[in-house]
Structure formats: structure tokens, C-alpha cells
Design a protein around this nucleic acid. Structure first.
Lengths: 109, 109
DNA sequence: TCCATATTTCTACATTAGTCGAAATATCGA
DNA sequence: TCGATATTTCGACTAATGTAGAAATATGGA
């Protein structure tokens, strides 16, 4: 659900975790490395990782003693698509002058 | 702040309001029309509009007795850019096969 | 000016979320 | 199997958020 995803991201630590993993790419990072990078106590980190996973924003896999987390890029792209869906009713709306803007893509093309 | 924007959107009613206004485009809608569209009590709606405005996601202007709200498209595009910033460290990451995906745009270009 | 309509503020209540130490659980290496 | 390291669950507490009725505050029209 979209609200769950936004909720998950609407929190300082979790947003930092997510961005870290977006930048890390599909290779991901172990929980320990995330904790180290962001200086979050492991119990808190675990709580946040669970929230992000519950919202389907993270993927995880076991690698020996480590659990490797990575961003779910598909889910992220779907989230963005949902927020911008049918922007301006599909009409050109004069907001396409923002660098990297995703609004009014159809109109732009 | 980004967390404030995500927080504002991480709520059923507010997300619905925001999407309605994204689709309405720069012309926007009056508070009354929003309340009508979404069947939210006016006091609740006002609370949510304030939240969205505080997060800089909405613009508002007075039009006679009405207050017209519209989406802040620039803020929305900035928010999306922040979440996807430096995706995969800028390397091609094999996630660019999602329709409309914004991740790895640089790599794609 | 006075009334009707639009919107916001106030208030009180119930629910949910975040924090982190300590204990529990899992997995590897010896 | 035992000890060490990685991660998760539990528990208790504090704080913030969502809800909506009632009252207050604009604004425009007669």
C-alpha cells in the first residue's frame, strides 16, 4: 500500500537507510554496515528495517551470518508513478521546467 | 524538509487530497470542492490542508470567499529527486526496465 | 449593516509510533 | 559442541498524530 510506503519513508532514520540503500544499488548492505554508517543502535535499526520491509521498500537475503538489505527499486518507481499519476489531467501544465521533474511526462513527450 | 513532506503524504486523506490536486493541475480546487470530492468533514480537511501546506506541498490563494489550493509541483519534483539521488552510485544498475522509472536516469542517458 | 456561506481554530479523546537496553535466536568457525 | 558475532524480539515508556463537533473568523451579497 502506498500510504504504508510513504509512512515508512517519513522518518529520519528510515529515510536515511533507504537513501543509503538506493545509493548502494542492488548489491545492498548488511544490517551491521547500515548500523555503522548511520550510528543507529541495532535494535532500533532492526525495527526500522522491518518497517521498510513491511512496506515492500526493501529486499533482504541471508548471506552467512549477515542479512543483506537492498532497495526495492521497482516499488520505489511504482510509488513515484502513483504520486504523479495523471498529472494535470494529462494536459501540458507548464510545470515541466523543473530539472528532473517527472510531472507531465506524457505531455512533454 | 523532506521528512515533513513524506509525513504529510503518509496519510490516507492527505494523499488523496494531494493526488486530487496533482490531477487538477495549477488551477487547483477550493477547500469546499475538495471536501465534497473526498467526503471529509471540513474541520478535518482544514487540518490536513494545513499539514500539506506546512510541508510546502500545496500553494493556496484567496478567491473571494473561497480558498483555492493547488499542488506545489516544484516541491513534488524536488522530493522525488531527493529520494532517487545518486541511485546506485550513478552506475548502471539494471533497474531501468521499469516503465516510467526515474532511477538511474543518468546511467540511462 | 446583517445574513448566509466558506474556512479555520479549539478541544478532547483514542490510537499509533519511536526509542533503546536486555534477552533471545541464528549462524559460523574451531 | 562451544563460543563469538550478527540480528531480531520483547518490554516499558514518552511523545506525536488523527478525528470531528462546536465555536470563532472571514468574505460577499442583499
Amino acid at each position: 500500500m502506498v500510504v504504508a510506503a510513504l509512512s515508512a519513508l517519513a522518518q529520519e532514520s528510515r529515510l536515511a537507510i533507504f537513501r543509503l540503500l538506493v545509493q548502494a544499488g542492488p548489491a545492498g548492505l548488511s544490517a551491521g554496515r547500515i548500523a555503522e554508517s548511520l550510528a543507529v543502535p541495532s535494535s532500533s535499526l532492526s525495527f526500522h528495517l522491518k518497517e521498510l520491509s513491511r512496506a515492500d521498500l526493501l529486499l533482504s537475503r541471508q548471506d552467512g551470518r549477515f542479512v543483506i538489505y537492498s532497495a526495492n527499486f521497482d516499488a520505489m518507481n511504482r510509488l513515484i508513478a502513483y504520486m504523479t499519476e495523471n498529472c494535470c489531467g494529462g494536459e501540458p501544465c507548464g510545470t515541466d521546467d523543473v530539472a528532473g521533474g517527472v510531472c507531465c511526462e506524457e505531455a512533454r513527450a
